[in-house]
Amino acid sequence: MLHIYLPVAHSSINIFLPIGLGLLVGMMSGLFGVGGGFLMTPLLMMVGIPPTVAAATDSNQIVGASSSGSYAHWRLGNIDFRMGLYLLCGSFVGGLLGVQLIKFLREMGNADFVIKVTYVLMLGIVGTYMFIESLMALRKGNKEEEGQEEPQGDSRLAKIVQSLPLQTRFEKSGVTQSAIVPVILGAFIGVLAAVMGVGGGFLMVPVMVYLLKMPMRVVVGTSLFLILFTCIEVTFLQAYTNHTVDFMLAVLLLAGSTIGAQTGTLLGKRLKGDQLKILLAIVVLIVTVKIVLDLTMTPDILLTTAGGE
């Protein structure tokens, strides 16, 4: 019994395929603190799962992978709950705003163009910046250990940020910030994630590393913890309104991804923050190139099912 029929996707699949995919993406999730939706959804579509089912089922799978990863990171003391809570509040509000923004963009026409270009630019800029920055840091050698201290207060922006009210000490991350900063950054990620239709893990990680100056290991744990909540919400909404979660497929993906997330976390313990960053940067850049190719090369068939993204 190598094949299993997926009732919602109306598709039959070799069981080792989703387990293998789950293992791979779950590992990345535990390593980098991303949901991996930007990787899993296109992979599932490649094996014949309809786009809407692929996206919805993937968010169900991420609930498993990120709870597995969050648990592992929590045991390692890598989750900054206070920072996570502020970011979550911000991204919740941002998500609501983002949904309205999409409606507005669609009414203006050409919304998809704006969305796709924003997506590619964000991925490209984030990937390139992380790549160069971590490469330089790796070259410099590891003079400083992980767990940087306070943000460097040279720039004017940093001064303004420091003068904001509600300065809070985030013990786990070892930084002192105004509570307004993570809320605003969370809102920004929420807007972008809603507009681009992605979970936002790949945006959350660089924001925490570069703007909130959190150490990489805490970033990964906290990001996974946030993704867990986002994906619980998305899974419920998709199942309730669109009926697109394929439970059978989710279970197979989970079998791989929950184990993958644990392995990823263990592997992450052996790598330095900059090594993790450069690996994530490479993955993000590969995904960017793939999306650019998909967008610029003439498609094989000029029609696609309506009801996708």
């Binding site: 990120s66 969050s70 648990y71 989970l254």
Partner: peptide, 22 residues
């Protein structure tokens, strides 16, 4: 029963994630 199905899917995913964690 989309709502119930969604909640069941979430519970199974959480149980699997935490179970494997333990």
């Amino acid at each position: 029963k989309g709502g119930l199905y969604g909640i069941a899917a979430i519970i199974v995913a959480l149980a699997a994630g935490l179970g494997v964690g333990v």
